[in-house]
Every structure is written in C-alpha cells, then in structure tokens.
Nucleic acid binder design. Structure first.
Lengths: 230, 230
DNA sequence: CCATTTATGTACCTTGCGGTTAATTTGTCA
DNA sequence: TGACAAATTAACCGCAAGGTACATAAATGG
C-alpha cells in the first residue's frame, strides 16, 4: 500500500523537519477558531486536523484528547487578553480621564476579541468547569482589577469619586455591557434590528456608557449625552 | 417486569392511552432542560428520550429531527418570557417609578429564567440561525419595547427625562447587565470570586444599576448609592 | 556511529448517537 | 363493525468522529 521509498502510488512523506513548537501553534490556531465557532462538542477533531498542516495523530500527541486541546485553547485566549490589558497604562492620567480610558479600552477589547468572547460563552455553558481546572487563568485577571483599584483610590483621595465606588463592581459593570454588546449581537439583532450595531451608533453607545458610569461615580458630574433627541 | 398478558420475558407495553399533547409537552420539558444544559450538539437524543415517559421514536414523530426539537424548545422559552413581560403593567406608575420598575423586573426575570439565558447563549453561539427561522419569536419581543417607549414618551412630556432618552438603548442597557449577571456567573466567579453573587450584594447591585440609569435619564437626578464606603 | 528518545505519518478500530423500519394498538367515522 | 388514520412501541442501521496501534524518520548524545 504505502511504499516508503519507491514511489508506488501512495506517497509517504519521507522527509520532514522536526518543529514541535510550530506544529503545536498551528494546531492551537486552528483549534481556537473551530472551538470558538462550534463549541466543545460541536467542534470536530478530524476537521481541525484537516485544516492543520499536520495530522490528527499530533493533536493527541501534544494535547492528549479533545478536552485537553480545548483547555489549551482556553488558556491561550485568556493569556492574549491579559497581555493586552497589561499594555494599557493609565497611571499617568488623572482619575476621571483614567476611568474613562479603562472603560473605553475594555469596550474596544471585547469588540476586537470575538474568539475570546465566544470561548467564554462556551465555557459558561460548561459552568466554567475547564477554566477552573486551569492553573494560569484564574490569577491572570488581577491586572485589570489592580488598575481599577488604583484609579478608584486616587479618585477618592482627590475627593472626585464617591466613597462607595468599588473596583470589582466597576469591572463587572464595564464587562457586562462590553461583553453583551458582542456576545448577544445575533439574537438581539434578530429581535430588535441592527440599529445599535452600526459604526456610528456603537461609538455613541460607548460615549453614553462612559457618561453613565461617570455620572454615578464622579461627584457632581453632569451627563453630557442623552440630552438631544436621537 | 410489567408484562402485558402472557409474561413471555420481553415486555411490550400493550396498553396505552393516546395523549399527543401530553407526550409533546413531556418531550419539550425534558428537551428544554437538556439543551439548556448541554447545547445543541452536546445534548443527546437518546438521553432525552430516556428521561421522558415515552420513546425516542416519538421525538422524531413530533419534531422531525434534533434541530426541529431544538427550535421548538427555543420558541417555548421565548414565549414563556414574553408571557411574563405581558403580565407587567407600569402604565399606572409615574415615569420615574415606571422606569425603575421595568429595570427591576427585567433584572429579576433574567435571574429566574436560567434556561432562557442558557438557550439564548447557545443560540448566539449558532449566530441565531435557528431563531431567525422562527416565525413567532422575532416579533414576540415588541411588548417590552412598547412599554419602554411609552414610559420614555411620558417622561419626556413631563419634562423629567432627557430628550435623547431612547427606549431601544435603554432596553439594550438593561438587558446587558441583567443577562451578563446570569450568563457569565461561572467564569466571572472563577476569575474574581463570588462576592458579587451573594443575595445581599445582588440586591445592592440592582439598586445601583437602577440608580445609574436614572442618573443618566432623569434630569437633575442625584445618585443615591455609591456614597458610602463598602 | 550506534542507541535512545522525540516527533511524525498512515491506517485502523470502536462505539455513541442521530435517525429509520416495521409492526401494533387506539381512536374515529361512514 | 370494519376500514382508515393517528399514535405508539421495540428493534435496528450506518457512519461519523473520538481515539489508538504501529511503524519509522529526525534529533541527540555518549
């Protein structure tokens, strides 16, 4: 059947380079796309293998089984997001500007990380059982909270922010509309139309969200949007 | 076990009542739970059949195939939610109280409809392709928007609400945190702990959300929460 | 330059599960 | 009352898809 040297019909790749890192990465890239698209049970190992430049065998060699691959994918997207958060520096901004910047960055980060969003949705369907197993992920997300806490502390110290302002709650709030804005786009559009998702409307929306948070956090802040008829 | 007449080993339920409606409902109830728990590809028809008091054959008899069953489930949970929204009457309340009531009701509705939340998440993973096929669902959700529009109109007419206040945007906003609060509980807890999900903290959270929306919509509204240290 | 480990390719096995076939009972109405 | 449709049961089927066995080429290093 598969002759090794004499080229009798069935070829056997008789010469190849060892490149574990590249092979691993290749698999991860494809798998991320497929899991994000179809979920854990929906994704197909054969299909993933087909799209890689390697074979199904290697998936099992490096990741053990489907769940192992899924976990690695999950850690990958979380790590990517974390890296982005780390890049963000608001230490030099005064509290109000810093808070505004953090909210805007979170909103943008979600819009531009659809794979992350989908994998988090999928993970929530699984009650985060794979995320909980991860060593790296749970502690990965401190960074954004630290930044928010710093800003809150500075804001309160300067007498600008209300005393009850809570970093975790702010993060929850910011995440909620940033996440929902992407995650539920399909069903929301189906029920209520696509009006809110146009480019101009999206930046308006962000403006208003920032405005809303500031109105609650910053003492004496006067909302700037929602004043004029749409 | 329950032999019919001649107890020749293999039982065959030889006596049964025709009850199409009940059988259909039985299947739907179990299927809703299973699809909500495991998703479209994750749910197992054999397992669903096992839990019903009927057989797998009947699933195919009434719903055609797995997707057909899934679509019916989807329509079911949307219809249930709609029915609840219809029960809500805020026409008698003055605008600010009415808006507060609508936000609270939406928040509560999401907390107490976990199947709905999960199925919407799942549907978004599928880019709402099944929801779009539905005849009933897309137009089902007008009710809540109508109510919000009425409240907004009254609020503006009374000079209480800012002119830019938009019903659709308000609904998007209210939905976003109400939905996220339930949908992402698993991953959020894993990353940041369960602090926000205690009973007392949840009602605080709702208070603050209402406060925040009112602060942006109602002219001259003074935020009542976030004033005292946590 | 041989032995051993690491990395890779091909072919295959097993079974879980979506879907079907065929028969049988229940209800209806001419 | 008997033919016909509707509802239901039990048994079966095919194959897709997760996972493995086995052989072998590339690196490593003593």
């Amino acid at each position: 059947m598969d002759a090794s040297e004499g080229e009798t019909g069935r070829k056997r790749k008789t010469s190849w380079k060892k490149d574990p890192a590249a092979v691993r990465q290749d698999i991860l890239t494809i798998a991320t796309r497929e899991f994000a698209a179809h979920g854990l049970s929906g994704a197909n190992i054969n299909e993933i293998a087909r799209q890689t430049s390697t074979s199904k065998r290697m998936i099992y060699y490096y990741f053990g089984d489907k769940e192992g691959l899924y976990c690695s994918v999950l850690e990958g997207v979380y790590a990517t997001l974390r890296a982005r958060e780390d890049d963000l520096d608001v230490a030099g901004l005064e509290p109000v500007a810093a808070l505004r910047r953090l909210i805007e960055a979170t909103f943008e980060a979600h819009v531009t990380a659809p794979h992350f969003i989908r994998l988090v949705m999928i993970e929530n369907i699984h009650n985060a059982e794979y995320l909980r197993k991860s060593e790296s992920v749970p502690k990965l997300n401190r960074s954004i909270i630290d930044k928010l806490e710093d800003v809150c502390a500075r804001g309160k110290a300067a007498g600008l922010f209300r005393e009850g302002t809570d970093a975790l709650e702010l993060h929850w709030l910011t995440s909620s509309f940033s996440f929902y804005n992407v995650s539920n786009r399909a069903t929301f559009s189906t029920s209520f139309g696509t009006a809110l998702y146009s480019k101009t409307r999206q930046s308006q929306l962000l403006e208003r969200l920032v405005d809303m948070v500031l109105a609650t956090v910053v003492i004496g802040y006067e909302p700037k949007t929602w004043n004029d008829p749409v």
